[in-house]
């Protein structure tokens, strides 16, 4: 479904991602692991079409070459991206945040309403906060809102950059369970950048460890859990 071929990504002269290739199948969860500065965030930005970085290589989605498409042209095709750190529109209400997530559907009122209804079922806590400004939500609620917003346009693939960052373990557990549910029930593909390797390996099908821009180790997550090399990179550098 999503295929990345020979991606190089630069910030000015610095090459942050080197000759990276990846295939994502329907309903698959892929975890990208690695220490800080490994190029994980750059990879997600490249999939989303954001600049910087300046990229070379090809990104193919459902047979279409989307390498040169702008970020706002990718959502309509079915690619939703949640960037690092930025989760919600702080000054807009929760309802308006969701509305913006479905902005491309605004003319199809019925579909939009159904989609909003279905994400509110996934995250009931948001329903109670619909008229609150997003900035007053807790970190976990903001992350749920972000995921909810990204889901409204019914994407085929969701890319998340550090969804667990700064959140308590219970909230993280709940979020990952929801992601797992989405994959099983709706066939959503997920590309996940995660610092917490144990968590990511537990929930993903396939994992890739990046070090300074390149793939270092990859394989089925179940097998990698016991891989000593992974431990070494995380602990020994």
């Amino acid at each position: 479904m999503l295929e990345i071929k020979g991606l190089n990504a630069y910030y000015g002269h610095i090459k942050a991602v080197k000759d990276f290739s990846l295939r994502v199948k329907k309903g698959e969860i892929i975890a990208i692991l690695g220490p800080n500065g490994a190029g994980k965030t750059t990879l997600i930005r490249s999939i989303g079409g954001f600049s910087p970085p300046y990229t070379e290589g090809e990104i193919i989605f459902n047979g279409k070459n989307i390498t040169r498409l702008k970020p706002f042209e990718r959502l309509g095709l079915g690619i939703a991206v949640l960037l690092e750190g930025k989760r919600v529109f702080p000054g807009l209400s929760v309802a308006d945040n969701l509305f913006i997530g479905g902005y491309t559907l605004r003319r199809r009122k019925k579909e939009l309403k159904e989609n909003i209804e279905s994400v509110l079922e996934l995250f009931p806590v948001l329903r109670e906060r619909l008229n609150k400004r997003a900035s007053v939500l807790s970190g976990g609620e903001q992350q749920m809102l972000a995921i909810a917003r990204a889901l409204i346009s019914s994407p085929e693939i969701l890319c998340l950059d550090e969804p667990s960052f700064g959140l308590g373990p219970k909230v993280v557990e709940a979020i990952f369970k929801t992601l797992d549910y989405l994959r099983k029930e709706r066939g959503l593909s997920i590309v996940l950048v995660e610092q917490d390797a144990a968590l990511a390996l537990k929930f993903s099908d396939y994992s890739i460890l990046m070090v300074s821009g390149s793939k270092k180790i990859e394989g089925r997550s179940k097998e990698l859990i016991n891989d000593k090399r992974l431990l070494n990179i995380y602990l020994g550098g």
């Binding site: 989303g48 954001f50 706002f72 939703a80 989760r87 919600v88 529109f89 509305f99 913006i100």
Partner: peptide, 22 residues
Amino acid sequence: PAGKAMKAVVEEKEIAMASGLN
């Protein structure tokens, strides 16, 4: 809607782009 979208673009340009707004 256009007013809300405009506000969204101003507040968080990149999320707005990821939400399909130009």
